[in-house]
């Protein structure tokens, strides 16, 4: 009893004023285990993927590591172990719900429907839906694809928009759903599909890693407003959300974010040293200046 009390007193005196109240939810779990678990993806270049020696690397992971640092300071922990667990689109929700993963460090689109299930921190990237086709096919817009097979990835916001546009503009596209981005790209490569509609950044990275990058052309036509990507965590955990939101807001307000961004989007990235050459868009710059977790694409235009 006395020893227990002593430990509490020592712990309290070690902690800063911020941690005076006993943490709850995810913060409590992190404090008790001195471990934070990041959910990482294996091929979401350049956000979260396996780099040299099968080590997870990427833009989102760099941001998550900064968040982990902020949590460590907030909780006054001497050391905080960062564990990385592989997740896929199908496993990220169950692993988050059952407490296996604390932060989803991938390329998850933040939308209103998903916010009923999970929470997102401040948007760290904006992606626009565009059309990728063979250069030889000379596709400038969806109108050039009337009646042709067009592939997108099942369960993405992109395939949803594609269905909507197809119906609204009566294009008669045959919309194919591929299981993942790699397979959708394979369908374009083997001419099963005349075009692949997806987030521009994912298309750029697929082209950059293709056998012959010059064989593919990305459309100028944008099929959507920029969709926010967010780092996701459990819902209804306000103290954790405050810490994560503050950490990202601080990071986005500092010059560090430009350096992290450039490292992954304008400089050679592992493992093969390709350069994606996607400079920071003005809308993203604005989102960094005014951090927000809004799922509404229109809000990123103001």
């Amino acid at each position: 009893m006395l020893r227990g009390l002593g430990a509490v007193v020592v712990a309290a005196s070690l902690c800063g004023p911020a941690a005076a109240a006993e943490p709850t939810g995810t913060l409590k779990k992190i404090k008790e285990t001195a471990t934070i678990v990041l959910g990482v993806r294996d091929s979401s270049v350049p956000f979260s993927y396996l780099g040299p020696n099968q080590q997870p690397v990427g833009y989102t992971i760099d941001i998550c590591l900064q968040i982990a640092d902020a949590i460590k300071r907030e909780l006054g922990l001497k050391s905080l172990a960062v564990t990385m667990t592989s997740i896929t689109p199908a496993t990220r929700i169950p692993l988050m719900a059952n407490g296996t993963v604390d932060l989803d460090c991938g390329s998850t689109t933040n939308n209103a429907e998903r916010q009923r299930q999970v929470a997102f921190t401040n948007t760290h990237f904006l992606a626009t839906s565009r059309i990728l086709a063979k250069t030889a096919a000379n596709v400038a817009s969806l109108d050039d694809l009337k009646g042709k097979p067009v592939v997108s990835t099942a369960g993405t916001t992109n395939i949803r928009q594609l269905h909507e546009i197809n119906a609204a503009r009566s294009l008669g596209l045959r919309i194919l759903a591929a299981r993942d981005h790699g397979e959708a790209f394979l369908m374009l490569e083997t001419d099963r599909a005349a075009a692949f509609v997806m987030d521009d950044i994912l298309l750029s990275s697929l082209v950059a890693t293709a056998k012959d990058p010059s064989a593919y052309a990305l459309s100028e036509e944008a099929l959507s407003m920029p969709e926010p990507y967010g780092i996701m965590f459990r819902r209804n955990d306000e103290p954790f959300k405050r810490v994560v939101d503050k950490a990202t807001a601080d990071l986005f307000g500092s010059p560090d974010i430009q350096a992290i961004y450039d490292r992954w989007f304008t400089q050679p990235i592992p493992p093969r040293g390709i350069v994606l050459n996607v400079p920071m868009a003005p809308a993203l710059r604005r989102a960094f200046a005014h951090p927000t977790d809004s799922p509404d694409p229109a809000s990123y235009f103001n």
């Binding site: 199908a90 429907e113 998903r114 009923r116 099942a154 369960g155 916001t157």
Partner: peptide
């Protein structure tokens, strides 16, 4: 799968 991707349910 598509349903759980769209809705996260």
């Amino acid at each position: 799968r598509a349903m759980q991707e769209f809705s996260f349910q």
